[in-house]
Amino acid sequence: MPKMKSHTGMGKRVRVTGKGKIIAEQAGKRHLLEGKSSKVTRRMTGTVVVAKADTKRIKKLLGR
């Protein structure tokens, strides 16, 4: 049986912390920024912990 391949695209988008949490960039800061207030765009900077509902799926893609 061949080895499972990890999803390289997902590996570029997220990283796993030492405790196993998954961290990703905050969504919504790529386009249509003129219509968003500066307060909103500032809030979208940086990284966030991915929702618990998505962690199982993402870990499977990463081969963990």
Rank of each mutant, 00 (worst) to 15 (best):
K3I: 11
K3E: 04
M4F: 09
K5M: 11
S6P: 13
S6V: 09
T8M: 10
T8R: 06
G9E: 03
G9A: 09
M10I: 15
M10T: 09
M10N: 03
K12H: 13
R13G: 09
V14C: 05
T17S: 03
T17R: 00
T17A: 04
K19R: 06
K19E: 05
K19C: 10
K19N: 08
G20Y: 07
G20I: 08
G20V: 03
K21C: 09
I23A: 02
A24H: 01
A24P: 01
E25I: 12
E25Y: 09
E25M: 11
Q26S: 15
Q26E: 15
Q26C: 13
A27N: 12
G28V: 02
G28T: 01
G28F: 07
G28C: 02
K29V: 07
K29N: 15
R30A: 10
R30K: 12
H31Q: 05
L32T: 15
L32W: 12
E34N: 14
G35H: 03
K36C: 06
K36A: 14
S37D: 07
S38F: 10
S38N: 13
K39D: 14
T41N: 13
T41W: 08
T41R: 15
T41P: 07
T41Y: 08
R42K: 15
R43F: 08
R43A: 13
T45D: 15
G46F: 03
G46M: 13
T47I: 07
V48R: 11
V49L: 04
V50C: 05
V50A: 08
V50D: 01
A51E: 04
K52V: 14
A53F: 10
D54N: 09
T55P: 00
K56L: 13
R57L: 04
R57T: 06
I58T: 04
K60R: 13
K60T: 09
K60Q: 11
L61G: 06
L61E: 06
L62F: 00
R64H: 14
R64D: 12
